[in-house]
Simulated scan of single mutants.
Amino acid sequence: MAFAIATAGCASQSERGDAADAATRFLQAAQDGDAETACALLTPRTLDDIVTEDGPCPAALPAEELTGSVTRTDTWSDWAKVDTEAGTLFLARFESGWLVSAAGCRPDEDAPYHCLVGG
């Protein structure tokens, strides 16, 4: 899958912190083997996309491949890009807070990013 993000405007330090916190909760849940909690932190569209013939999200989420700690966070309006030493996450802001729209993303020759989840 490929994922691209459009950027417009800047966000406050608080918004960057909130996005980084959401990404950290997602990654920690995945690393702890708590796929149910990690799935609850996905956007509705990403959650719908991850359900496969393997079953619901907790069974289909490649949790063991979603690792890393936040090293940098950039936000634009309702979008965030969170980098880790193991890859990139993209998040979208909802009324309920920041949710992960793509994770385990790495630059790709054929598209801006290839993501393990979403995109």
Score class of each variant (00 low, 15 high):
86 A>I: 00
11 A>R: 14
104 G>H: 06
98 W>H: 06
61 L>R: 05
64 E>W: 02
19 A>E: 08
65 E>P: 03
119 G>H: 02
90 F>S: 07
102 A>F: 07
78 D>S: 10
9 G>I: 00
49 D>W: 08
30 A>R: 03
112 P>F: 07
6 A>R: 09
114 H>W: 13
83 D>C: 00
30 A>E: 09
45 R>W: 10
17 G>D: 10
117 V>G: 06
53 E>Q: 10
44 P>D: 04
30 A>H: 07
77 S>G: 06
56 P>A: 13
51 V>N: 11
88 T>K: 00
63 A>C: 10
113 Y>Q: 14
11 A>C: 15
7 T>W: 13
109 E>C: 04
50 I>W: 12
28 Q>W: 02
118 G>S: 06
15 E>L: 05
63 A>H: 12
44 P>R: 00
25 R>F: 04
34 D>E: 05
11 A>K: 12
52 T>R: 10
66 L>T: 01
18 D>T: 02
94 F>D: 08
56 P>N: 12
31 Q>A: 12
98 W>Q: 03
34 D>I: 00
78 D>L: 13
116 L>W: 10
52 T>C: 05
113 Y>G: 06
39 C>H: 05
14 S>T: 12
2 A>C: 15
23 A>W: 11
92 A>Y: 11
28 Q>I: 05
63 A>E: 09
73 T>V: 15
82 V>R: 03
26 F>V: 01
32 D>G: 02
2 A>Q: 08
106 R>D: 12
90 F>G: 09
34 D>W: 02
112 P>H: 05
25 R>P: 02
102 A>Q: 09
14 S>M: 11
7 T>R: 13
112 P>V: 04
89 L>R: 03
22 A>S: 15
26 F>P: 09
85 E>P: 01
85 E>H: 02
76 W>L: 03
117 V>A: 04
30 A>T: 02
119 G>F: 00
35 A>H: 04
49 D>C: 03
11 A>Q: 13
68 G>P: 02
47 L>K: 13
59 A>C: 01
53 E>T: 13
20 A>W: 06
105 C>M: 04
30 A>S: 14
86 A>E: 15
